[in-house]
């Protein structure tokens, strides 16, 4: 009954050229309000949330993934195990120290997300080109890590969307697939419980151990 009434109201709006253009702005503000209400802990409390980081960077004129030259020192990836997390970044990145994240799947390959490749397995050594680099190990059993890696690999070819919310499993960014892979194994790598997740969040997690770090 309610569904029918909603459809009737919606129909009236859609057929009226006067009100039609107000539908999406109206829905936008309703949804924005719901998101803000549901995440008030981020609005009032947390200065480390992704949205605050973006806003701060924007005010400094930093809006992209940063830029710079790779540091000359060579990094060994020999100690990495499947399930480890690799972070890379450039100075002036808008969303924190790191702009990119991948989950190591073995054989010098990493599963990561790019807009023009979707979720895909790529060679690990391209992380050498980042001036900021961090290798993280999730404190979990081998079985849990293998399941996390299997989950991530099962989503190859799926869509990358840079501002993908943490909810849902149809679009991803490089951090969300890693967070979700471990979240489903009972390990939450985002202590802020943010709406989005950025590579930076993994480093702040008490569930990980830093294996290696270079940069600022």
């Amino acid at each position: 009954m309610y569904g029918r009434s909603i459809m009737q109201i919606l129909n009236r709006f859609i057929s009226s050229s006067r009100y039609r253009l107000m539908i999406f702005p109206g829905l936008f503000f309703i949804l924005l309000g719901l998101i803000v209400l549901d995440n008030s802990h981020l609005v009032w409390g947390s200065r480390d949330s992704v949205i605050y980081t973006y806003a701060d960077s924007f005010l400094k004129g930093e809006i992209g993934s940063g830029y710079g030259d790779a540091a000359a020192d060579k990094v060994s990836f020999a100690d990495l195990e499947p399930g480890d997390i690799v972070l890379g970044g450039w100075p002036n990145c808008a969303y924190g120290r790191f702009s990119h994240a991948g989950i190591y799947v073995g054989d010098n390959m990493v599963l990561e997300g790019y807009v023009d490749y979707g979720l895909s397995v790529q060679k690990l050594d391209h992380y050498l080109s980042y001036s900021e680099l961090c290798l993280l190990r999730v404190e979990a059993s081998r079985e849990v890590k293998d399941q996390a890696v299997a989950y991530a690999l099962a989503h190859q070819g799926e869509m990358f969307y840079p501002v993908a919310f943490k909810s849902g499993e149809r679009y991803w960014n490089c951090s969300k697939i890693i967070w979700q892979a471990y979240q489903l194994q009972g390990i939450n790598l985002d202590i802020l419980n943010d709406v989005w997740i950025a590579p930076e969040s993994f480093m702040a997690s008490p569930e990980v151990e830093v294996l290696y770090e270079k940069g600022t």
Binding site: G118, M159, R170
Partner: peptide, 19 residues
């Protein structure tokens, strides 16, 4: 984008279908 995300997760010429 939500409709595009419904495409199967295949690739063609090294790029995902949604591309």
């Amino acid at each position: 984008i939500p409709l595009v995300s419904l495409l199967p997760a295949g690739t063609f010429l090294d790029k995902p279908l949604y591309y």
